[in-house]
Design a protein around this nucleic acid. Structure first.
Length: 704
DNA sequence: CCAGCGCTTGTTGGGACCAC
DNA sequence: GTGGTCCCAACAAGCGCTGG
């Protein structure tokens, strides 16, 4: 630097330094430092090298000149004796006080780690016991980093931080916990802390391919949790995650010992805190429910009441004749806010004026209401979706098929939203009796703070399982002559929930297609159950999930089989009868049939096939056809019998040679199709499509 | 600086059961 | 029948920390 530089301010000096560093090709200051302190000494062969020596010389002059030395001296002067014992790098507070650390355990360099160039000249004597190179940088940088970490941690402790627990609990404040938004918050407000913690958590091998894993250990979520714990240990009011963990543990009836253990580590808050807070929460929820009740009464919000019974088995500690395990029955209710309700839809006078029309309803009216074209379209689209799902060569049609459901066949798709729901207090009422249903309704009304006269203008859908609906219908029937609107229960609209409706439809399928005595291992669901070796199938009990999966699987298999049958009937066959060659897997065969014979098959052709399969195997007409009008070679099977007429039901003509199994299978595919569509329409959120299936089922059963 | 909160620790009471 | 044990829930006192 020339004498002129003496007039420059510090900022100017630094700026011109940085400019020089940049102008000779370093991308950034950290890059420069890295090259200078780590890469340069490592990369060069010997200290006697020409350029190497000159850099070393310059660096030594620079160090002697006094820029770094005061910094190092300053650090040394600020170190206490303890700090020095710990090699001066890790501050005292970073280790819990009762742990004895032997001196020099941190950063104890082997001699190989220290570049020989720093040991030349007088300066080396001063630094003899101080690690240089990497160590100098660390010594210089660590206090700065720690200071930055302190600053960031303080920022995360802010009351508006997403890690900060709520001062008074509410379900909203607990439910707002989102590890993803906490992560975003941490990345934004505490980048240094976040990068340090996530560097520990994310495996080096994983950093290259950042694919998203749905299950298993998630290092980023883990980092958020670790950060939450650390912040909670720093300041107990930064406790959102430990609070939520406390509630989770509470809901699992966790032993107090586990609470003590986990709260020591900052994973959960103490049991007494959780207990205390939950009591207050209960009180505040009671208050807010009263508020909701007044909004219901003023018709500012239209709601559905949902309730179902809950059972809990109390295990007796010591079982005896008098003391056995008990099953406790209670009721859990939820209030759900309805959205997008058309004006006047929930008008009790309108309902009252129309009630008498119901008795005029005939089967023909119901049948006329069904959109048969839509059902046909659904049948074909469902076939297509199953074929596309399983046959590899059709995979690229998947978006087209999906579009059919979401555009051509859509009826009333719901907009995407999150429903507002309000869980009520559980009660010990047994809702399985009519008086129980009455008590439950009374209990819900009192929790919402609604008086009897508030119901005069209200219509409230009360949803539950089939039993609940039956009990409420009975209750309404028993009280029709009562005086007040409330006591007549005319305000309550019993309504089967979709899930229970699904279950009811599922049961009817098992009821109809699980043959009792004859041929039970030859055809029908039971035969398939044996073939698939399904466990846990009991048609009398009909547990939902196992049985639902079973119907899905058999239906999908039947649809694939039907496609093969249609292709065969059109003369597309594989020669599989060769000696020593087993029959191909159905998927392999379909792949070959569709690929080779139609190379490649067009979507229109596939649609035609779907239409054929639907008409041939999934309609009531197909069922009737199978009962007599089958097209078999006359010379082999004789004359086909006549189609069965309703008056012939149960009395088969002497010459009848219909295919009873085929007819039953057709009905089963038809019923399964309706169930399949019901489930998928519910999942896809298209209530219009759900309603179409309900209309079909309504002609057959009362649960819809 | 101090009120309030969270937490620990200890106490009480009730219920159920068991051994004697 | 009595006393002891276990479990649960509720409560209070005391301590330390936080935050206004």
């Amino acid at each position: 630097m020339s004498a002129k530089s003496g007039h420059k301010t510090l900022a100017e000096k630094l700026a011109s330094c940085m400019q020089h560093i940049k102008s000779v090709g370093f991308r950034s200051f950290p890059d420069f430092m890295k090259q200078l302190v780590i890469e340069f000494p490592k990369g060069q062969g010997s200290a006697t090298d020409g350029p190497h020596q000159s850099v070393t010389q310059t660096l030594r002059t620079f160090l002697e000149w006094g820029s770094v030395k005061p910094v190092l001296d300053g650090i040394a002067a600020n170190m206490t004796e303890k700090d020095v014992n710990r090699d001066g790098l890790i501050p005292d507070y970073c280790i819990s006080p009762d742990i004895a650390i032997s001196p020099g355990i941190f950063l104890s360099f082997g001699s190989y780690a220290i570049d020989p160039i720093f040991f030349a000249g007088d300066y080396s004597k001063e630094l003899q016991h101080t690690p240089v190179g990497h160590g100098v940088l660390l010594r210089f940088a660590l206090p700065i980093v720690l200071e930055e970490i302190d600053r960031e941690a303080n920022a995360l402790m802010d009351k508006n931080s997403l890690f900060h627990g709520a001062r008074t609990w509410s379900w909203d404040s607990l439910l707002q916990l989102s590890l993803d938004s906490q992560q975003a918050h941490a990345v934004k407000n505490a980048p240094v802390i976040w990068s340090i913690l996530s560097t520990i958590a994310v495996n080096q091998g994983r950093r290259g391919s950042m694919e998203i894993k749905e299950e298993g250990r998630d290092p980023w979520q883990g980092t958020v949790v670790a950060l939450s714990l650390l912040l909670y240990l720093r300041n107990k009011s930064v406790a959102l995650l430990p609070q939520v963990m406390g509630v989770v543990l509470f809901s699992c009836n966790t032993n107090r010992f586990i609470y003590r253990l986990l709260s020591r580590f900052g994973i959960s808050v103490a049991y007494s805190t959780v207990s205390n807070k939950l009591h207050k929460l209960g009180a505040s929820v009671r208050e807010s429910l009263k508020g909701l009740g007044s909004r219901i009464w003023k018709k500012e919000v239209l709601v559905i009441w949902i309730y179902d019974n809950i059972q809990r088995n109390y295990v007796a500690w010591n079982q005896s004749v008098a003391n056995k395990n008990r099953m406790h029955t209670g009721t859990a209710a939820t209030v759900l806010a309805m959205e997008d309700v058309p004006e006047g839809a929930m008008d009790p006078t309108e309902l009252a004026s129309r009630l008498h029309l119901r008795s005029r309803l005939t089967f023909e009216d119901l049948e006329k209401d069904i959109d048969h074209e839509h059902i046909k379209g659904i049948g074909e689209a469902t076939l297509l979706s199953i074929w596309v799902k399983f046959i590899p060569c059709l995979k690229n049609f998947a978006p087209t098929v999906q579009k059919r459901f979401s555009e051509d066949l859509k009826k009333h798709p719901l907009r995407l939203r999150k429903s507002q729901y309000y869980p009520l207090e559980t009660s010990d009422i047994d809702e399985s009796t009519t008086s129980g249903a009455q008590a439950v309704l009374m209990d819900i009304a009192s929790q919402l703070g609604l008086e009897k006269e508030d119901f005069d203008e209200l219509l409230v859908p009360v949803a539950g399982d089939l039993l609940t609906v039956d009990r409420i219908k009975k209750l309404k029937a028993y009280t029709t002559t009562d005086v007040t609107t409330y006591d007549r229960y005319s305000w309550a609209l019993p309504w089967v929930q979709l899930w229970h409706m699904k279950w009811a439809v599922l049961r009817t399928i098992f009821h109809a297609h699980w043959p009792g005595m004859t041929g039970k291992l030859l055809c029908g669901l039971q035969a398939d159950c044996e073939t698939l070796r399904r466990k846990n199938i009991n048609p009398k009990k009909c547990d939902f999930y196992s049985h639902s999966d079973f119907i899905f699987d058999t239906f999908e298999a039947l649809c694939l089989g039907a496609l093969r049958a249609v292709l065969h009937s059109e003369g597309n066959t594989l020669n599989t009868a060769r000696e020593g060659q087993s029959a191909p897997n159905i998927l392999d065969e379909l792949e070959v049939l569709l690929n080779q014979n139609f190379s490649p098959i067009s979507f229109n052709h596939l649609s035609d096939l779907a239409q054929k399969v639907y008409l041939r195997y999934m309609t009531t007409g197909a069922h009737n056809a199978a009962l007599g009008d089958i097209n078999r070679p006359v010379e082999v099977y004789g004359q086909p019998g006549s189609q069965m007429e309703p008056q012939h039901e149960g009395v088969e003509k002497f010459s009848w040679n219909g295919d009873r199994q085929m007819a039953n299978l057709t009905l089963r595919m038809r019923d399964s199709l309706w169930y399949y569509e019901l489930c998928h329409a519910i999942v896809e959120g298209d209530t219009g499509r759900v309603l179409e299936i309900i209309k079909v089922r309504a002609t057959l059963m009362s649960a819809c």
